[in-house]
């Protein structure tokens, strides 16, 4: 099929997403190496954008690149008969340069969580399913090191990989109509943090007072793809202290 146009270079395959976006597919699976590769290439592209470059959307195994087709087609610096060719050839040249880049580690973000009780209504259920105590679940969940794989679903919602396999739990059969912002949930092998009050079907084990999303911050989303995250259990009283205070936006 002539329409199913793709362009393959060493690390990724490029396919068109729409007239104004292409997707770079690095892999078909989730792992930390791929995440790092995507993160590295994303940084490089932002440092060396092409004419008409707008923005990117990193996901588990892909990086989508958005652009203005008019600027791309008019650019004297890009070669090719259409936008897809012009961008593909630019990105593959960039990839060659990437080989010489130094890997910079993203910092680690500590996120306080108040586990169980009214903030984590499913904690006991998750513990029961795995034949553990609630404290064992908290211990496992708060000693692992996570990576942000994807920001999506709602603005600022963070999907995290790296949860201990023993905690993998299916979604709830009936989603809740409202899951409060800050709720920390488990769905299958992933853990994630709700950024807005939305409906949701994840098993909710706790809540953070931090604002995952705040449109008044320079960076509205607290986390970005590639960030390293650790959780720290916090007391109920401390939660109330953070909640509503300005610390909820600045805590690191």
């Amino acid at each position: 099929m002539q329409n199913m146009q793709t362009y393959t270079v060493n690390d990724f395959t490029i396919y068109p997403l729409s007239e104004y976006a292409v997707t770079l597919e690095f892999s078909h699976e989730i792992n930390a190496d791929i995440l790092q590769l995507i993160s590295k290439f994303n940084t490089l592209l932002h440092r060396k954008p092409f004419d008409g470059f707008c923005t990117t959307v990193p996901a588990y195994a892909t990086l989508s690149v958005f652009f203005d087709p008019l600027e791309v087609i008019q650019s004297p610096h890009l070669r090719g008969i259409n936008c897809f060719e012009r961008i593909s050839s630019y990105l593959s040249r960039l990839e060659d340069e990437e080989k010489n880049q130094i890997i910079t580690e993203n910092g680690t973000m500590t996120i306080p969580i108040c586990y169980g009780g009214k903030f984590g209504p499913d904690l006991d259920e998750v513990a029961r399913l795995h034949g553990m105590t609630a404290n064992e679940v908290i211990h496992l969940h708060s000693t692992a090191i996570y990576h942000v794989y994807l920001i999506g679903f709602t603005p600022g919602f963070a999907y995290l990989g790296g949860m201990p396999g023993q905690l993998a739990t299916p979604r709830k059969s009936f989603p809740r109509s409202v899951v409060p912002a800050g709720s920390v949930g488990i769905a299958g092998k992933q853990t994630g943090i709700y950024s807005l009050d939305t409906p949701g079907g994840w098993q909710i084990i706790g809540r953070t007072p931090l604002h995952l999303f705040n449109p008044n911050r320079a960076q509205p989303a607290l986390l970005k793809a590639g960030d390293k995250v650790v959780f720290k259990a916090m007391e109920y009283d401390r939660f109330e202290h953070y909640n509503g205070s300005k610390d909820a936006d600045t805590y690191h």
């Binding site: 990193p58 920001i151 603005p155 793809a225």
Partner: peptide, 9 residues
Amino acid sequence: WNYLSQGMP
């Protein structure tokens, strides 16, 4: 358009 990576539609 500039906050897609932060999950903003």
